[in-house]
Simulated assay, not measured.
Amino acid sequence: MKHLNNGRALTLVLVAVLLGVLCYYITPSFRGIKLFKENDIRQENRLDADVIHVSREFHLVAPDHLQYKQPSIVHGSRTDVVTVTPWLAPVVWEGTFNPVLLDSIYNKKNVSITATVFAVGKYIMFLKNFLETAEQHFFIGFKVHICVFTDRPDEVPQVRMATGRQLTVRSVPSSKRWQEISARRMELIQSLIEEQLPNDSGYIFCLDVDSKFHGRWGTESLGGLVAVIHPGYYRDDRSKFPYERSPESRAYVAPGEGDFYYCGGAFGGLLQEVHQLAKTCRSNFESDAKEGIEAAWQEESHLNRYMWINKPSKVLSPEYLWQDFKPKNPEVHIIRFSGVIKNYAEIRPNA
């Protein structure tokens, strides 16, 4: 009996030894499989991080069988103006685009457009004309949201808007200086995008209320970062541009620098691009203010500094913000949007 028990014990010992040997050789294999899977997952994650997702901005799909005039690369539709910048951004003039083709492309994208407009103080008097003409010319046939910032919400006019278009009103405080109204625009645009449009992948344009539409403003103006060339300086040498010339200011543009002089009264682009512009200009303006510095043309000066470094991907000609007191120059075939004639002494609180 004693020998039997010893035999069983020996058998158990041998089985344990065999299992140990098997585990020694098998476990590394399992460890290797697990390590391989972990490495594979890490590799997939790394590849995902390296993938460049093509922006829908550059994925332009036209409807099948759409008929339109054949384009040419040897016979330009405009030879009297420059239609591309040195960094290869289009400059949009009448005759340089096919509106039917563009609208058909962007209709497939189901884009939405937000427009901000500031009607503070006596500037409320311009809002009705702005809204009514926008209903006639601004992105007709597309989803449009016009956001009015005003300190007089009860005076916002009732304007009938087409299906798919809406108007909202955001109250803002009054100001005793028109410069403060101008300067706060970047802050309010930044806040609007962060608070109300954070998940929207559409476009936004920031427009002056003391203006009106005369002609089409549509999909030809869409781009990543969109600037409008100022009608008062587009024929001038850049030495005459009213850039901020004080090196102490964060809006400073040095002599010999600058591309064009852009309007502060009309700019736009993709929401994320305009958000970055507004955030940067606001930060720079506030940093200047802490040092007692105010740029020559407030947010317009900071916008021009920003766009000197961050080149716009599309540039709109002066057709997109003309001045009503100026006669139309020969190269301007159509006026799409313009600043109306006004008496600044009557409408600005400290003019």
Rank of each mutant, 00 (worst) to 15 (best):
H3P: 09
T11D: 11
A16P: 04
L19F: 01
G20D: 00
G20N: 00
V21S: 00
C23N: 13
Y25F: 15
F30H: 01
I33W: 06
I33N: 01
K34I: 13
L35A: 12
L35P: 02
D48T: 10
I52Y: 11
S55Q: 07
R56T: 10
H59P: 04
V61W: 01
A62E: 09
H65M: 01
K69G: 04
P71N: 09
V74I: 12
R78E: 02
R78D: 06
V82G: 02
V82P: 00
T83P: 00
T85S: 12
L88N: 14
V92Y: 11
G95I: 07
I105C: 09
Y106I: 05
K109W: 06
S112Y: 02
A115L: 05
K122I: 04
K122A: 03
I124Y: 10
F126C: 03
F126R: 12
K128F: 05
F130L: 10
Q136K: 15
H137Q: 04
F139S: 05
F149I: 05
R152V: 07
R152K: 13
P153R: 11
E155Y: 12
R160D: 07
Q166S: 14
L167I: 02
V172S: 00
S174I: 03
R177E: 13
W178S: 07
R185T: 01
M186Q: 13
S191P: 04
L192D: 03
E194T: 06
Q196T: 08
F205C: 12
C206H: 01
D210E: 03
S211Y: 08
K212C: 11
T219W: 12
E220L: 12
S221R: 03
S221E: 08
L222R: 15
V228E: 09
P231G: 01
G232M: 06
R235L: 09
R238A: 09
K240P: 01
E244T: 01
E244M: 03
R245G: 07
P247K: 06
S249E: 05
R250F: 11
A254H: 02
P255A: 02
P255C: 00
D259S: 13
Y261Q: 00
G265L: 10
F267L: 08
V274E: 08
V274Y: 08
H275F: 07
K279R: 15
R282Q: 13
F285N: 15
E286W: 08
E286H: 10
S287Q: 14
K290T: 11
A295Y: 02
A296L: 15
E299W: 14
E299P: 15
E299N: 15
S301N: 11
L321W: 06
D324W: 05
F325T: 15
P327S: 04
K328F: 03
V332F: 08
I335Y: 13
I335G: 11
S338Y: 00
Y344M: 11
A345I: 02
